[in-house]
């Protein structure tokens, strides 16, 4: 008889693996991708495809060069690609999208040791770098699609329509909320559907909530961070402005929902305890509101998550549970 395997227990395992988890995240991002391609047109798909291709390709090439085992099969690079694309305006030049993807994968993820080792969220950090490097294209919000244009015209008839470029320049809701443009806010219905200015994957609240719910049901993420994050933004803005309407718009605007469900729940860069996740979410919410209301940037979700990423190891350690029957050393 041939040799039998002798290994340490346990000898069975549940079915979850890194790639099944990442696959669930990709599935959860699908509703937002579909919504985006309807709202912003097929270019949304093109930008996403470019980001995924360069994120996955970048990881493959980098690992080839440094002779590390190939990890593109775990699908985490693909997730980073989709998330970065969702944080870009649809009109972004493709080479800039490609550049951002390489920054996310190579600089933020691989140079720190690859999956699980990076302290900052690759997509968020790459977006911030792009915001600084390409500040004009990164803040040009356009509706190149006919459906969306019609919606925009309906929502704010006074907006100038540039027929020559077949696109509508549009301020994001957050800029309007700051009261600097005088433009009218999109209707709540449009906010929920996502027919508003913004990054290509962040606008449709319904699609993002659908994806978030899927991740919660599949237990890929826990409720702690999203609830704490969104709840803090809602409460804090309500305390400051005292208007329910205003707070609802704050929650539905910008990248809050995609941030709370998909970015502030990233495993490597957020705490691994329940209380830690609550603290992380509250911290993100506070920083987001501080930047949105008093900062010079209209949006603060990316900065808040990046700042809290830095605190993550300390939060994890501080909230580590006391082992059952543990005696203090």
């Amino acid at each position: 008889m041939s040799k039998m395997t002798v290994s340490v227990s346990p000898h069975i395992k549940d079915s979850a693996s890194t790639s099944t988890i990442m696959r669930d995240v990709l599935i959860a991002l699908c509703p937002a991708l579909i919504a985006s391609s309807i709202i912003f047109g097929l270019r949304a798909l093109l930008v996403t495809a470019v980001c995924v291709a360069f994120a996955v390709g970048g990881e493959w090439v980098f690992e080839k060069i440094v002779k590390k085992p190939n990890t593109i099969g775990d699908l985490s690079a693909a997730v980073t690609g989709v998330l970065l694309a969702f944080n870009l305006p649809v009109g972004i030049p493709l080479w800039q999208a490609a550049f951002g993807s390489l920054v996310a994968i190579i600089v933020v993820k691989q140079l720190f040791g690859g999956i699980g080792q990076n302290f900052a969220n690759p997509a968020i950090t790459a977006r911030i770098i792009m915001l600084i490097a390409f500040s004009s294209t990164m803040t040009s919000w356009v509706f190149p699609d006919a459906l969306a244009r019609a919606a925009a015209v309906l929502a704010s008839p006074n907006t100038a329509i540039s027929g020559a470029t077949d696109a509508v320049s549009s301020a994001t809701t957050l800029v309007i909320l700051k009261g600097e443009t005088g433009a009218a806010l999109p209707s709540i219905q449009n906010m929920l559907l996502g027919i508003r200015g913004g990054s290509l994957g962040e606008t449709s609240a319904i699609a993002l909530a659908l994806g978030g719910a899927y991740l919660l049901i599949r237990r890929v993420i826990s409720w702690h961070t999203p609830v704490a994050f969104i709840g803090t933004v809602f409460l804090f803005t309500f305390l400051v402005k005292g208007s329910l309407d205003y707070s609802v718009y704050q929650v539905l605007s910008g990248g809050l929902l995609i941030g709370a469900f998909f970015m502030a729940t990233d495993y490597s860069t957020t705490p691994n305890t329940d209380w830690g996740r609550v603290i992380f979410g509250v911290g993100c919410g506070l920083i987001t509101v501080l930047i949105r209301i008093w900062g010079s940037y209209p949006e603060g979700v990316s900065f808040s998550i990046l700042l809290m990423n830095i605190l993550t190891p300390y939060i994890s350690k501080a909230t580590r549970k006391k082992p059952l029957g543990g005696v203090k050393v």
């Binding site: 979850a16 890194t18 999956i115 699980g116 080792q117 495993y267 691994n272 329940d274």
Partner: peptide
């Protein structure tokens, strides 16, 4: 493969 710090072992 590499630990992805998901925290399942802790939970």
């Amino acid at each position: 493969s590499s630990c992805i710090k998901c925290g399942r072992c802790v939970a």
